[in-house]
Design a protein around this nucleic acid. Structure first.
Lengths: 121, 121
DNA sequence: TTTAATACCTGTAGCAACTACAGGTTCAAG
DNA sequence: CTTGAACCTGTAGTTGCTACAGGTATTAAA
């Protein structure tokens, strides 16, 4: 239903993100609507790049019930800053690589300027 | 000299990226200029986001001595594509987060629209 | 020349966030 | 009632390191 692997769900249980659900007589986990919602929440957070610790924090806010916009927005802003920093790093890599690639003929010749640059920078 | 942790260098040795260097009588590793160069190469590749497998590939090309521009450029282009794909993913996250954040007052009030959206999307 | 501080040595375990088994049990459909 | 799938627990693997523990080597100063 959520597109999350069963093993991942059980992993979330060990990590305290998902509650231990009731079991059938034979020991199978019996999930209800609330589990589906919670797991979907976790999945959406993961898709937005939150790590499990951050998600745990968000869940604690929600579970506590007494969260405020300001708390949530602070976390969100921090996370946006993280993402931007990652983007900056990647763009820097991209620029360097494009720069090196532009010096390279790409032909069937030895002594590539890319290798040269990496080796002797 | 290279800014790489000793433990990381030894790790690279176990992973076949760095050769086993000669040892002193007492068993200490004795590195020479060639090791410094190779390690610097690895470090620069890491900074450009290549993983150890890709670096192993590049080193094999270089060690073989018979590499061509076309081989190196192919690898580089693949890697640029990877980086761009990561950037796209991050920008998508950023957009979603900014969108959600813009709906949130950030004040000391309950019922945050960010949580609402994550919980009920 | 001794000694003390530092840097090295090996081997193992830990981090994140899962994934992939092995070896066994339970469930649901036919 | 059987059979095949999905579940169960527990452990080990993935990536790229980092952090010990417990011991040895080196080196600079006294």
């Amino acid at each position: 239903m959520t597109g999350v692997n069963p093993e991942t769900i059980r992993y979330y249980e060990t990590q305290g993100l998902m509650p231990a659900p009731p079991r059938s007589g034979g020991g199978h986990r019996l999930y209800g609507q609330s589990h589906v919602k919670r797991l979907s929440f976790i999945r959406r957070c993961r898709e937005l790049g939150f790590n499990l610790d951050e998600i745990r924090g968000l869940l604690e806010l929600v579970d506590g019930g007494a969260y405020t916009c300001s708390e949530v927005l602070d976390q969100t802003r921090d996370h946006i800053a993280d993402i931007r920093s990652k983007i900056r790093d990647l763009r820097k890599m991209e620029r360097s690589l494009l720069d090196m690639a532009s010096q390279c003929s790409g032909k069937d010749v030895p002594d590539c300027p890319i290798v040269e640059k990496l080796w002797n920078a």
